[in-house]
Write a protein that binds this DNA or RNA. Structure first.
Lengths: 110, 110
DNA sequence: GGAGACGGGTCGTCGCGCGATATATATCGG
DNA sequence: CCGATATATATCGCGCGACGACCCGTCTCC
């Protein structure tokens, strides 16, 4: 499957710990500095695709204050995919930084 | 407009220097370690949206070996948008690295 | 009793990715 | 000479993914 910014953020949110839907929305909002706010449609669409890809799975339910929470967790494959994409992102960001900001912020010798 | 990985890579390719369509495809392929290969449909779709957003503009034509080259360059606004998104990407990648990698080094062959 | 946070989910629209296709020139191997 | 490959442009249509609108509820606070 295609890894978009939204699906990547969901993977990242689940990497920390298993979360329920609403918790994922908040975690993504937090991870992205309040710039990515998942709507319900986006969330469940992403979740369905992650489960179909074998990268996430349902992880039990819980009732808190009369409200149902449905949890999801990463699979091993999901964790691998996340790590791989994170490597690519890191490399890309480093490359981009060189192209975008010609002056070295770290005061390097080059 | 929405900044996707594809449109981001095109912005990055144009940040280095003005390029023509085919040159952008090759630059993106290079920037992404041969993992993102823009098809014609993707390229011109992205280009249209970048121009419509005021982030890129046509920059003259040239004929080389009997083939027409149509050049595009970044605008000031495009450069700002690119820098802003690069900052977000860098921050996200750093955050992700903390969550994802208990292992010390990147260990790649690059 | 109403507003707003918390919690689940579906549906329809539309933007975007992308392959297929069309058109044309230069190069190189067989 | 012919076909394959690379360079170069652009359009079209399909399908997937993002996202808001909307639906159902509970609990808390005012």
């Amino acid at each position: 499957m295609r890894i978009t910014e939204q699906s990547y953020l969901v993977l990242l949110a689940l990497a920390e710990e298993p979360r329920h839907g609403y918790g994922i929305v908040q975690a993504v909002r937090d991870l992205s500095d309040d710039e990515v706010r998942l709507g319900a449609g986006t969330l469940y669409g992403v979740l369905d695709r992650l489960v179909a890809a074998g990268w996430a799975e349902a992880s039990g339910e819980e009732v808190v204050d009369g409200r149902l929470r449905r949890y999801y967790r990463l699979t091993g494959a999901g964790r691998e995919a996340l790590a791989a994409h994170t490597d690519r992102l890191t490399a890309l960001a480093a490359r981009a930084r060189r192209l975008v900001a010609p002056r070295p912020a770290t005061g390097g010798a080059w």
